[in-house]
Simulated assay, not measured.
Amino acid sequence: MKKLAFILTMTLSLAFSKNTLAQGTIVDVAVGNENFSTLVTALTAAELVSALQGDGPFTVFAPTNDAFAKIDSATLNSLLEPENKKALANILTYHVVSGKLVATDVVAALKKGDGTVELEALNGETLTVVQKDDKILLKDAAGNHSEIVATDVMGSNGVIHVIDTVVMPE
């Protein structure tokens, strides 16, 4: 089972990290990957593109299009409206941590924290990383979980870890 999980993780990692060697920012990496088109649309609607093109470094837990598809379409469309820019920005900055935390950093912190580590997101709220079985998960403010399905997609100003569910702040 562990071997199957490892093979699946490596396959997903390769699928999502074709731009791993790109020298562009994390936004450029996201723009260049069709699996992040909804994220890029949301970043644009929230006017966060220029902020995430800054020097950083940043660690972004990036939801895929499939992760965004788990949100009710009416809710998602509403969040993309200009009058909801502040709420959308709050959600998106909940997915970003200041500093560059590669997978080995996260694993080391989990080991030191007995399988749990709390990170302060850019929106000021706490995002909890937990290890459960052979998976590393994000736990949001409501206790919902999102699995990290690919790691260490590098940009010039940080790193992206791919997640399968959008995490929600309070």
Rank of each mutant, 00 (worst) to 15 (best):
A69Q: 13
N35I: 01
S37W: 04
L52P: 01
S17T: 13
A62W: 01
G32E: 14
A67K: 02
L43I: 08
E34P: 00
V40H: 07
Q53V: 09
A42K: 00
F36T: 03
E34D: 13
K70T: 14
A46W: 01
N19I: 02
V40C: 06
F36Q: 02
D72E: 15
D55V: 11
S50W: 02
A62I: 03
L39M: 12
G32L: 09
V27P: 00
T44A: 12
T59S: 12
V49T: 15
A46Y: 01
V60T: 06
T64H: 10
L21Q: 11
N33M: 05
I71D: 01
I26Y: 04
T41K: 15
F16A: 06
T20E: 14
P57S: 04
G54T: 12
A67S: 10
Q53R: 14
G56I: 07
F61K: 00
Q53A: 12
P63K: 10
T25Y: 01
S17R: 14
N65S: 11
A51Y: 02
L43H: 04
D28A: 15
T44I: 13
A30W: 07
L52E: 00
D66W: 04
V49C: 10
S50Q: 13
V60P: 00
P63I: 14
T25P: 00
T41D: 10
T41Q: 14
A46C: 08
F16C: 01
S37C: 12
Q23H: 10
A42R: 00
F58K: 07
L39I: 11
S50F: 01
S17N: 12
F61A: 05
Q53Y: 10
A69T: 12
S37I: 04
F61S: 05
P63D: 13
N65T: 07
L39A: 06
G32W: 11
A46V: 07
A51G: 08
V27W: 02
I71A: 02
T38P: 00
A42V: 07
N33A: 13
N65H: 08
A62C: 08
D72R: 12
T20S: 13
F36L: 08
P57C: 04
V60F: 12
E47V: 05
V29K: 07
L21T: 14
V40F: 07
G32D: 15
F68K: 09
I71V: 13
T44D: 15
N35P: 00
K18S: 11
V60Y: 08
D66H: 10
P57T: 06
F58E: 08
F36G: 04
T41H: 03
L43A: 12
A42Y: 03
D72M: 11
G54K: 11
S37H: 08
F36P: 03
S50C: 08
P63G: 11
